[in-house]
């Protein structure tokens, strides 16, 4: 489509793009390499360097032995916490969002526009406006400092996104399909189960990936509503980097950072297409 004949120009283009790409890759390369270097080596040279001696044990230590705030069990418990929050919250919010999106896109009921409009405001309302009320709600239902509390928060807050994603996908389903099913005798649930849900895998994947990455990477609620052994891994990472300020253990810390980032990076590697679709879908509200 564009001019392709200008050879020196094209070399320049490749050069620039490759340089920027290299710059983008520096942080992850540095962390990966550091996670395989001993702390002494890092202290002597710098964060940036090729391992002279491969320190594979960093990962074992980071996973199970490392001390974070008086407990020495590595980041394993925190990874488990994150998983126990992220997985249920992702599944529940996606399912509820799919049903809600289905209802607002393919059915008319009194107040549908209004309620949907308010739900989408959740995309914009900053977390800071909800921190205090959540504190009170969690205290009143006895879920403060529990993983269930975080699951509840992420599920309810996630509904804004999941409903929006699914609704925007379902509005493209022809109304005639729903009409045909109604004439055939199918009701609200059967139409969802037999007709809408089988069409949904693409948007469900987008939604699950979006929710998973967001909840896994979330920090503010984790650090506010949980302490100690109940914290998700993002909160634990901060504690970890702060705790070792006196005796730096950058090799092990790098390994911990890699482990903490791995789930979402894997999701990105294997579901990149859907991840990007989620990003752009969230942008074009």
């Amino acid at each position: 489509m564009r001019d392709t004949s200008f050879a020196p120009g094209r070399i320049l283009i490749y050069l620039i793009v490759s340089l920027i790409a290299a710059a983008y890759l520096v942080p992850i390369i540095v962390v990966v390499l550091n996670s395989l270097r001993t702390s002494e080596e890092i202290a002597q040279t710098s964060m940036i360097g090729w391992p002279q001696r491969w320190a594979w044990s960093n990962y074992g230590i980071a996973w199970a032995d490392f001390c974070v705030a008086q407990t020495c069990a590595g980041i394993r418990p925190y990874m488990l916490n994150s998983a126990l929050v992220t997985i249920p919250a992702t599944i529940i919010s996606t399912l509820l969002g799919a049903v809600a999106g289905y209802a607002v896109s393919l059915w008319r009921f009194p107040g549908d526009r209004w309620i949907y409009g308010i739900v989408t405001l959740g995309l914009f309302l900053p977390q800071q406006m909800r921190l205090l009320p959540w504190t009170i709600v969690l205290r009143d239902v006895g879920l403060i400092n529990t993983l269930s509390g975080l699951v509840m928060i992420h599920t309810i807050q996630g509904l804004s996104f999941t409903t929006l994603f699914c609704r925007n996908y379902y509005v493209a389903i022809p109304q005639e399909l729903i009409r045909a099913a109604r004439v055939d005798g199918a009701g609200f649930y059967r139409i969802f189960w037999r007709i809408v849900l089988p069409l949904s895998p693409p948007i469900l994947i987008v939604t699950v990936i979006w929710q998973f990455t967001h909840i896994w990477n979330e920090f503010l609620y984790g650090v506010t509503f949980t302490t100690g052994q109940q914290q998700p891994v993002t909160a634990a990472l901060i504690a970890l980097t702060a705790a070792v300020a006196d005796i730096p253990q950058y090799g092990v810390q790098s390994a911990a950072v890699m482990i903490a980032a791995l789930p979402t990076l894997l999701v990105y590697v294997f579901g990149g297409r859907y991840f990007v679709r989620g990003l752009t879908a969230g942008a074009v509200k």
Partner: peptide, 22 residues
């Protein structure tokens, strides 16, 4: 494109930690 976008998949905590080292 994947290279330019992968940072979006990483948490701010990880980003912040890594850049604090760099």
């Amino acid at each position: 494109r994947s290279i330019f976008l992968y940072p979006m998949a990483v948490s701010f905590v990880v980003t912040g930690t890594v850049w604090s080292w760099l």
